[in-house]
Amino acid sequence: MTETRIWKTNWLYFLACVLAPLALLLVTVQRYWKLPELGDWDVTQLLQWPPVLPFQWPPDRTVLIPVAVLILAILWWKLGVRAIFRLCLRGAERDLERKGFQCANAFTGRDCAVLMDEENRKIALLFKWNPFHTYVFPAGRVTKVWVDEGQRGQGVMEGTRRVSFLFTVGKSRVRANTFSSSRRWKMDGDNVLTAISMADMMADLLESLRKGEE
């Protein structure tokens, strides 16, 4: 258990989560919208003004079924995967407690959860894309801990999109984001400062746990 390689992504689960709703969407579109075969599409109909759809809408309300499936698929991608991660994390915490793991400090990010047992000097990891497997290993296996502020740009463009703390376990590198965004935020912004502080704190805890092991 302690020497296994850390798999951050279970590709089967990942593909099932991403592709299954997509496949269902395609099936319902084909079934209810009665799209013609790809070769039968008359594209010139789309080019004329006003454009005409190259297929007939069904006259009843079944036309809305693919729309409902699309909404459900988006909800699944946005919320369902996260809900599974949270449920698995709760289950893992109960399981670890039963096995004598005394969680003193924990960090739960969007992509992974890091649990620390200071009494037994152990660390437990759970990943969003591999939520059915909890990795537990002695803190001594952690070889390096550091914080990545993600600082990019210069002058007024200086900022960050991601703040994280990282550590290496054997050959695997684990990154836990304390802040991530699609846009760049100023380094002295409140949310960035909070994230840097959180990352510093977690890195400090991991480092002390690691050194205590040696």
């Binding site: 400062l193 909070t194 502080s197």
Partner: peptide, 9 residues
Amino acid sequence: FLPVRDKIK
């Protein structure tokens, strides 16, 4: 305040 390296929040 929250001290964050050389800055404070």
